[in-house]
Simulated scan of single mutants.
Amino acid sequence: MRKAPVSLPLGIVIRRTPSVNRWVPFAWQAVAVLPGAAQADWQVLREEGEAVEFHAATVPLELWHTDTEAYLATLSARVPSIGVVMRETEDPDAEHPYEILLATASAYEFQDYADSGEELLELVPMPEGLVAFLRDFVQAHHEEEIFVKRRRDKKRIDLMEDGRGDARISQLSDVFRAPRTGRPH
């Protein structure tokens, strides 16, 4: 039976700063997480000159007991971080151009999103309390997997005939023969 994940609400703080690119007015970056935060929808937290920090959203941080190896990879990083996955909204003229899809403590899950290239990804340093929470979770649920070396089957692979190619593909003749030129010999 699969155990349910441990879930913790995690507020995502996004900073908007003026862009140095003349075609894009603002740069958006995830800069912090707020463990245990209430729901929010782009609530302004702080303004410093033209820079504004928003509590953009609160998403669940789900910890699965089967993913402890990935959490160990996260904790062993120089700076343990939460991966924040954002996607551009459909409306290019929206006041807040990103929606928060996910926050993850799994280095492997974060890497999977990086492979797609569709989303904006940010690594946000974990607060000390969240590092301790994740470490306690891993200690409670991690089970070392014993490495089992795969054994080869007893099929003989040295019986192949050179020049015949793959035995599973039917061939009428030698695959390495010289092509005919069409001239009589």
Rank of each mutant, 00 (worst) to 15 (best):
P5M: 11
P5F: 10
V6E: 02
V6S: 06
S7P: 04
L10T: 05
G11F: 00
I12Q: 04
R16P: 04
S19Y: 01
N21K: 06
R22A: 05
R22Q: 04
F26M: 00
F26V: 00
F26L: 00
A27M: 03
Q29L: 00
V33S: 00
E47Q: 15
E47M: 13
E47F: 06
E48H: 12
F54K: 14
F54V: 15
W64L: 13
W64F: 14
H65K: 11
H65N: 10
D67I: 02
D67C: 07
T68N: 06
Y71H: 01
Y71C: 00
L72C: 06
T74A: 01
L75K: 05
V84G: 01
V84D: 00
V84Q: 01
V84M: 07
M86T: 01
R87L: 11
E88L: 09
E88R: 11
E88I: 05
T89H: 03
P92K: 02
H96D: 02
H96K: 09
H96G: 03
Y98D: 04
Y98M: 11
I100S: 13
I100V: 15
T104N: 05
A105C: 14
Y108D: 10
A114C: 14
G117P: 11
L120C: 03
L120F: 03
L121W: 01
L123N: 12
L123G: 09
M126I: 08
E128H: 15
F133D: 15
Q139A: 08
H141E: 10
E144Y: 02
E145Y: 03
I146M: 02
K149H: 02
K154G: 09
K155L: 08
R156Y: 03
L159N: 12
M160H: 13
D162R: 12
G165H: 01
D166L: 09
R168A: 12
R168M: 04
V175T: 14
V175C: 07
A178W: 01
P179W: 02
R180T: 13
G182Q: 13
